[in-house]
Amino acid sequence: MQDGTSAPQRIAVRSSGRNRRPDSARLRRLNILVGALSLPLFVGLWELASRSGAVNMVLFPPPTVVAAAVLEWIRSGQFLVDLTASLYRVTTGFMVGGALGILFGILTGQFPVMSSLLSPLFHILRPIPPIAFVPIVILWFGLSEAGKLFLVVWGVFFTVWLSTHIGVQKVDRGLIRAALMLGTPRRQMLQEIVLLGALPYIVVGLRTAVSISFYTLVAAELAGTFAGIVYRIEIAQQNMQTGQVMGGLAALGLISFIADRLFAVLAERTVWWR
């Protein structure tokens, strides 16, 4: 529970009540309890609502049906195929887009000429949602993997480029002057000062890009493919397998959640001096 979502409540709890210490301790325990109950409660209510007959069970299948669909998905071996295909697209797209973004961010951030040359172009291209490129990607790449990769790279690149660019530009001039006074040659300034100074920004950009790579994955797999989590959701929808659709959504949510968490841990280690 290190995400920001529970912090405002905690602050509110702390400042309320006359006997703040014992009160806040008890309330915190209550909070943890409620937190642990959150998901089971939600699933339970959903099960009841679905089975009550108040809603259409085909469109709103209860969690048990969804779970059965997911189990079947896993047992058939198809889940592993889909997962591998999706993860492959996300990770390669993320790495290629991230690497390019960092590279160009350093170029435009460090060299004014490069910035004059490229920044206007990048700023025009950046706001176009990757999903808008699906039609042209199909024209260019057909149904090949290259097209999928292109979309994810596209989405990741601009986020990482911009944050790297800003990070490089924001490197404290004072640090550079100090480094110069200590005899750091100008040609070593990039590796000695600029990259490390920009690192916190780069890491934030990469972390944002993790969720973006999952958004673009959706666009990529809807652009026509033969395997993948989103592809499975689409097929299930065409067959009216609502349980499978929901299972797919849950899987997608879980995977991107895990990816984000893993990256957060990684990020903390990358900026080691914090």
């Binding site: 004072g174 640090l175 100090a178 480094a179 200590l182 005899g183 750091t184 490390l196 001096w273």
Partner: peptide, 24 residues
């Protein structure tokens, strides 16, 4: 030179900060 702000390299320990000049 010593500036008004220390301008220490935040990613380096005290020892590494001081050793930076000699390393360069």
């Amino acid at each position: 030179m010593v500036f008004q702000q220390p301008h220490l390299f935040p990613w380096k320990s005290v020892r590494r900060n001081i050793a930076h000049g000699p390393r360069m």
